[in-house]
């Protein structure tokens, strides 16, 4: 009797936690469909804020910037991170633990530190050599640097989970180094690569701090645009943008999760 009461209270606690996490998001989604101009009351269902979004050129530019930045940085991070992950696996037996710790460091580094360092670095380059002034390029580089460790670790953990004799079996079955990459490594890695790409993309779309410090005046991304817009007061339009972002990030996260699961099942 007492035990079941305890279990019920645990279940209750669980649902409270879920509510705590998701209610604010729910409120935003709800008010994005609000017919009224104010967030004080709900005046009925409307798509007017979504319609308004479509006519907002600044916002569409920001959305475009976000997508270009997200895709470009994720693709670059995927290539470099995969190579690093493979290298970490190949040399795991040597005493390179500190190198692997080095890969973890950017993950735990506060974004603000990262962003300011990147900014200082790019400004110096710009001043001394006249290259890499704040632009989409600097943002892509900055994003790639924080995405790489995530990609490398996903790829590395996939390799560690494989039977090491598979690499030897491929050699034994006449596969040249190129054929081993093409017919063994890449297909085996595929689910992990898809997962890593979508994780990197989610991180990029989500990022505000690092983008903020490395962006040029023309390169506002959605988070930067929203931040600017909110300073002028919260408009229900922001709720509509936020809802769309929640949706797209959720989709990317689910895809990443599904593929990571598949790669672990094999």
């Amino acid at each position: 009797m007492r035990r079941s009461a305890f279990r019920r209270s645990l279940t209750l606690f669980w649902w409270l936690m879920v509510a705590f996490l998701y209610l604010p998001l729910g409120v935003i989604v709800l008010y994005s469909f609000n017919a009224a101009n104010s967030a004080a009351y709900f005046a009925g269902f409307s798509l007017r804020w979504y319609e308004r979004l479509l006519g907002n050129d600044q916002l569409l530019t920001a959305l475009g910037n976000t997508l270009v930045l997200g895709v470009a940085s994720s693709v670059i991070a995927l290539v470099i991170g995969t190579l690093i992950g493979y290298g970490m696996y190949r040399h795991r037996r040597r005493k390179l633990g500190w190198l692997i710790a080095l890969i973890y460091l950017p993950i735990v580094m506060p974004d603000i530190v990262f962003g300011i360092s990147e900014m200082a670095f790019f400004i110096t380059l710009d001043r001394e050599f006249g290259v890499l002034g704040p632009s989409l390029a600097t943002m892509i580089i900055a994003h790639v640097t924080f995405q790489i460790p995530f990609v490398a670790l996903i790829v590395y953990s996939r390799f560690v989970g494989l039977d090491p004799t598979l690499f030897e079996a491929a050699k034994d079955l006449y596969a040249s180094p190129f054929q081993r990459a093409r017919h063994f490594l890449l297909p085996t890695l595929k689910p992990s690569l898809v997962a890593a790409f979508f994780l990197a993309f989610t991180l990029s779309v989500d990022d505000f701090v690092i983008s903020f410090f490395t962006a040029g005046p023309e390169n506002a991304t959605l988070p930067i645009y929203i931040w600017g817009a909110i300073r002028r007061g919260v408009s229900p339009e922001i709720n509509a943008i936020a809802t769309l972002m929640i949706l797209s990030v959720a989709i990317a996260a689910v895809i990443s999760l599904l593929f990571n699961k598949e790669s672990r099942r094999n």
Binding site: T165, E168, A169, A170, H183, F184, P187
Partner: peptide, 25 residues
């Protein structure tokens, strides 16, 4: 060719694709 202790069958391939691997390479 080697028959490995762990068999080392490729998890991303079916049985027939596994058997055909060496010939394909």
């Amino acid at each position: 060719n080697t028959v490995f202790q762990s068999y080392a069958l490729f998890p991303h391939l079916s049985v027939s694709e596994n058997i055909a691997f060496g010939l394909r390479m």
